[in-house]
Nucleic acid binder design. Sequence first.
DNA 1: ATAAACCTTAGAGTCTACTCTAAGTCAAGT
DNA 2: ACTTGACTTAGAGTAGACTCTAAGGTTTAT
Lengths: 130, 130
Amino acid sequence: MGYTISQVAKKFDLTAHTIRYYDKEGLLPFVDRSKTGNREFSDDDLDWIKLICCLKNTGMPIRQIKQYIEWCLLGDETLEIRRQMFIDHRKEVLRQMEDLKENLKMIDHKLKCYDKSCNISPNTKQLHSL
Amino acid sequence: MGYTISQVAKKFDLTAHTIRYYDKEGLLPFVDRSKTGNREFSDDDLDWIKLICCLKNTGMPIRQIKQYIEWCLLGDETLEIRRQMFIDHRKEVLRQMEDLKENLKMIDHKLKCYDKSCNISPNTKQLHSL
DNA sequence: ATAAACCTTAGAGTCTACTCTAAGTCAAGT
DNA sequence: ACTTGACTTAGAGTAGACTCTAAGGTTTAT
């Protein structure tokens, strides 16, 4: 049967506008159309979109995601370069996690200062960390 | 003595343009000027900028950072609201870390598939995870 | 004294990623 | 038959965060 654009939008917390934008940018060349020209998303398509969202949410720019999709369409010839892309991107994500950890330290430090200034006891403090 | 704008830029891996932009947006109302009108950054100013970068790098929009700076200028009256801001932002950072962790899982899974497709042995694989 | 290397401002331009609008097609319900 | 509510397109507009330009001031070295 397949899913409509608004069903997919809801599933991935996107808008139909955004999905059409991704399609226009070349991120969804695999999506089929119904006789009336409407996009019809298969379960496989949902997997692609899931991966696209993963890459997007880890900071990969749309044109690089497009590059990846293009490599996928080219077949086995591009397996090694795609693998390398994931190796590099993995490193980048680990870097982001490290950065967040560092920044969290500073926020926790600031919060400790504010708890002191506001005369919040450690006990009360536990309430808002839940 | 104090630091010049380009010294501060280098220190925080920003450009002088960006620092002036932050100033124009109201993020640096505390920075003094020399007799000739140049910005002169103190060590205290560097601490402020460090915090601003921390908030910016954890996804806080500039106008919210500006709001925070304004609250700071108002004094103790705003202590509680500033503390609440940090509590909320901390939650947001934890959420980002969770999201990254989830996305990393998917990237690792993809990578495993690519290692298989490229006939990479687990031993060889260890090389690129270093 | 004049060039180099800083700094200043206002304001224009750019990039990314949407976000929306207008005009239109199609299928289903009353 | 006609309204409602999906969907379609091309293309314009927006938001955020820079990024750069032009025109000019000051300090330092030759």
